[in-house]
Computed example of a mutant assay.
Amino acid sequence: MMSTSTAHRSPEDPAWFRHVLGQYPTGVCVITAQPADGPPIGMVVGSFSSVSMHPPLVGFYPSNTSETWPHLQRASHWCVNILAAHQSDVCRRIATAPLAERFEGVPWRPAPSGAPIIEGAVAWIDCVPVAVHDAGDHKIALAEVRHLDAASTELPLLFFRSGYGSFSPLTLTAYDPDMSLTRPLRHFELIRSIAQELPDQGLRCLVTAPVSDSVVVIGQLDPPSGSVAARPTTLVGQRLPFRPHGPSIFEAWAPAGEQAAWVARFSPDSQEAEIRALARIRERGFSIGLGSEGHRRFAAALEQLAAEPGAVPNEELDALVASLDYEPADLTDAVLAEARVISAPVFDSAGSPVLAMTVFGFRAKPDIVRDAIAAVTRCAQRATRTLGLAPRRD
């Protein structure tokens, strides 16, 4: 219910207008240009948006009182730089330094047009001005995109309630520059609301998909937390090796020939054990991984990758995956007390396991582990029905 003290505040009150609109977070961009006869120009904006795809247009909204805008308006090209969360110092410098000194100490390189691309920016968009319209005490500046790139895996800088910061991601999906994840990302969007029930129950969840010889983290869902990390981290987009002796959740329901090829990758003395492990996954409907030194080292490697993508070489990841301990023969209380990860398959309409929901971060107590198993398998079965097929148990 709206408070009577604020219900009738007028939109003509600038302070109140800014306060209410400040509840909506915006990204922070620097619009740059390179004049032919002077130093580069930069202007900070928080009001930038995509306008059209055909043709590709973007827009921003400079103030009529901006001292930078008249210089920027005369430029033949603009480059929009979407700043990363750690670049608040760059933002402040370009917002406050004299026009001719804004890029002193700010590393940059030229875009195809020659306008500055600020090093470390999350993305840049090189464009040509096409129109400027009056809009009250601002302008609407439109530009046609000529070149663009997502240049960093960092999270973006946000402006919210008159301050700068970043967000702590609860749900993220993978970036797909080469379109290799189009199908699994579509599947994830269809079942996202179901997967969200897991963090709502306090479980951390990764959604993965098999792509070529890797398992790709396409979604991450974390429970809300009272603490916000200074630099939020995520595994989304990380490609993990699909190797023995890692979880075989995607191979357990594969065609016989594919299963045989998978088993053949194990050493001869391990092949029978892997055949039995695949049978256990099919019978149980989930994969379970136990705590071990290998799991601890693998978890540490994942934390490192979340903080700094590429920090752990693929060869090291391969070796860590080979040391993991999955699919125990019996699920006694003593064994469940060692459980660290649980994965359940999501099938597409053709009956193929196309996604896996993996939960972790739960307390290793038998009853809690059983609840986690029930939660993730229940969500995976509902997700499968959403994709058009009841779970297979053959």
Results as ranks from 00 to 15, higher is better:
residue 5 S to Q: 08
residue 9 R to E: 02
residue 17 F to G: 08
residue 18 R to N: 08
residue 18 R to C: 04
residue 23 Q to A: 15
residue 24 Y to C: 15
residue 26 T to V: 08
residue 27 G to H: 11
residue 31 I to D: 01
residue 31 I to W: 12
residue 37 D to S: 11
residue 39 P to E: 09
residue 40 P to Q: 07
residue 42 G to P: 14
residue 43 M to R: 12
residue 44 V to T: 15
residue 47 S to G: 10
residue 51 V to P: 04
residue 53 M to A: 14
residue 63 S to K: 13
residue 66 S to C: 10
residue 68 T to E: 13
residue 70 P to H: 12
residue 73 Q to D: 09
residue 76 S to A: 14
residue 79 C to D: 03
residue 80 V to P: 09
residue 86 H to R: 13
residue 92 R to A: 13
residue 96 T to C: 05
residue 98 P to M: 02
residue 98 P to L: 05
residue 104 E to K: 14
residue 109 R to L: 13
residue 110 P to L: 07
residue 115 A to N: 07
residue 120 G to W: 05
residue 121 A to G: 12
residue 121 A to W: 05
residue 130 V to T: 15
residue 140 I to P: 05
residue 141 A to Q: 04
residue 143 A to E: 04
residue 144 E to S: 12
residue 150 A to H: 09
residue 150 A to D: 01
residue 150 A to R: 15
residue 154 E to H: 13
residue 156 P to Q: 02
residue 157 L to G: 11
residue 158 L to Y: 02
residue 161 R to Q: 11
residue 165 G to L: 10
residue 165 G to R: 03
residue 168 S to E: 10
residue 180 S to V: 01
residue 181 L to Q: 05
residue 182 T to S: 11
residue 190 L to Q: 09
residue 190 L to P: 03
residue 193 S to C: 03
residue 194 I to W: 03
residue 194 I to A: 01
residue 196 Q to Y: 00
residue 198 L to P: 00
residue 200 D to C: 04
residue 205 C to I: 05
residue 216 V to R: 00
residue 217 V to E: 03
residue 218 I to T: 04
residue 225 S to W: 11
residue 230 A to T: 14
residue 238 Q to V: 10
residue 256 A to G: 08
residue 262 W to K: 00
residue 263 V to T: 07
residue 266 F to N: 09
residue 274 E to S: 12
residue 277 A to S: 15
residue 277 A to H: 00
residue 281 I to E: 11
residue 283 E to A: 13
residue 285 G to H: 08
residue 286 F to H: 08
residue 289 G to C: 14
residue 292 S to H: 09
residue 295 H to M: 09
residue 317 L to V: 03
residue 318 D to M: 08
residue 320 L to T: 07
residue 323 S to E: 14
residue 324 L to C: 02
residue 330 D to Y: 09
residue 333 D to C: 02
residue 343 S to H: 02
residue 343 S to R: 02
residue 343 S to Y: 03
residue 348 D to A: 00
residue 354 V to P: 02
residue 354 V to Y: 00
residue 354 V to G: 03
residue 355 L to H: 01
residue 355 L to R: 05
residue 358 T to I: 09
residue 359 V to T: 15
residue 361 G to V: 13
residue 363 R to W: 05
residue 368 I to Y: 01
residue 373 I to H: 04
residue 380 A to E: 05
residue 382 R to E: 03
residue 383 A to R: 00
residue 385 R to H: 02
residue 385 R to S: 07
residue 390 A to Y: 01
